[in-house]
Design a protein around this nucleic acid. Structure first.
Lengths: 269, 269
DNA sequence: CTTCCCCATCTGGTATACCAAAAACAAGGC
DNA sequence: GCCTTGTTTTTGGTATACCAGATGGGGAAG
């Protein structure tokens, strides 16, 4: 069905994509960056038409990018309404943290049992990188190293599915944990605990690892509380460059528990 | 910006969607059904154009449906190639089972701690339904009840994120577990263990629940091995109609580790 | 007869046009 | 003055057209 005519239309078209690998992923990464850095604030609507035009792409890949971010929990889809940047409530954050802890525990157990020495070395080097950059690096970079350390453990567990899901939860909690990392003593503590975790791993001591992990992530809910309080304060105080949006009623009722909360991936019949 | 012209074209168009709720989800459910029931066999390509035409929809929602199934692990996307029905290797299945067990353990712990009596009653009733239908129901229906029971525990844990992820893993393992449920004594055993799990939950006994759970899901890898062997045999026999199945070479190389294993969700920069 | 290259075709990726539902807005009635 | 209702606008959902990379078969050269 293709080219019966040898290209009778010489128009070079508006846009030549010519790069196959990851166009929607690239858009997703861009959007994610904006959300995590705060350029797009929670509750703000993500209109696929506008953002597509703004980034110079069409709606189709933008749409797909939005779905990707929705899968990660950064964007919330609504049945016949604009997607909005997710404003996770405390309950959701704590729930996710609970799952994350379980996943990290499993990662640690498997890594203790299965990881190669080279793999443990990779974990240790991730921790070392973070320690090296502790004084000098930007907080955001330091935080990325933190994430990299935890991701390394999941990867070296040898369980690809676990690593994938773990990464998804890490991404989901990225913003909240980043905001929670403002306190420097917490970062110092995290550093020490990372060292202990590495030690437990090289000793193949599951119990020790689990204990440290518990300490490491136990305080998360409290920090989330602080983060949410800060967010709410900022949201209430600021309506600046948004322009069109006024501090409407819809900002608050999102804190209410959504009744179900599970099914958005579609169910098997 | 929309309609400067007052609709000069009276053609009613080929298709009026007229139903807002979930068209891509519906397609995804349909496809999932075909895959799980075996109408679409592992390794077979899923051409969005053909399937869209066959189901009377356009490529766009079909595309999205394929992405949904890819997220669930039922379909494997390739960079510049047709998506294919995933043929999970033993390693992947066992990895997923490992994560599933961890998620179910957490579900049980939380349900023991947090679930309301009404919630426990819902779990018990799910188990009861399965027991009632054990003799009469089709195997596929019986299996759906099995899934419903496990999902109920995750739901009643009160942790929505956990329930969602747990459901995703359940879906991912759906087919393999279904094929593994061919052995009737296994189903009988599962039934008894479900009863024990309910008992542990109503007693709020985390230790007992965990113990039963371990027994319940421990044998999964072995069954997966059987399933894969069966699949391979069928796949080998299908290519040539004569009964003489040869031990095809292509069944084995899937066991090789794929190097990457994680990144398809895109990473934050 | 084998091998290599070219072209027809297939297929996913992207862009765009159209439709319908829902919210925002304005005008009229109580 | 406030509530109601009809209209406009906004926005996501769907369908379709076009493009580029990939694949495989057929023909020419060795």
């Amino acid at each position: 069905m293709g080219k019966t005519a040898p290209d009778p239309d010489p128009t070079p078209n508006r846009r030549v994509p010519m790069s196959l690998p990851p166009l929607p992923d690239h858009i997703a990464a861009e959007l994610r960056r904006k959300i995590l850095r705060g350029d797009l604030r929670p509750g703000q609507s993500v209109k696929e038409r506008d953002h597509a035009a703004e980034m110079g792409v069409s709606r189709t890949p933008m749409r797909e990018a939005i779905r990707i971010l929705a899968k990660e929990g950064l964007i919330e889809l609504r049945p016949a309404r604009s997607p909005v940047v997710a404003r996770p409530d405390l309950r959701e954050l704590c729930d996710s943290a609970e799952v994350l802890i379980a996943l990290e525990r499993l990662s640690g157990e498997l890594a203790c049992r299965n990881a190669s020495d080279a793999g443990l070395a990779r974990i240790a080097s991730a921790a070392q990188r973070m320690e090296d950059g502790f004084a000098t690096a930007e907080r955001i970079d330091s935080f990325e190293m933190d994430m990299a350390f935890h991701m390394a453990i999941a990867v070296e567990s040898g369980n690809a599915a676990l690593a994938r899901t773990h990464r998804a939860y890490l991404a989901r909690l990225w913003r909240a944990r980043f905001l929670a990392s403002r306190l420097k003593e917490r970062r110092q503590l995290a550093l020490e605990q990372h060292g202990q975790m590495v030690a437990a791993l090289v000793a193949r001591d599951v119990g020790a690892f689990t204990a440290v992990l518990g300490d490491h992530l136990a305080g998360l809910p409290d920090y989330f509380r602080l983060v949410l309080a800060g967010e709410a304060a900022e949201a209430g105080a600021e309506t600046s460059k948004d322009g069109g949006r006024r501090p409407g009623k819809d900002e608050d009722e999102t804190a209410a528990l959504r009744g179900e909360g599970i099914g958005e991936a579609g169910t098997s019949g």
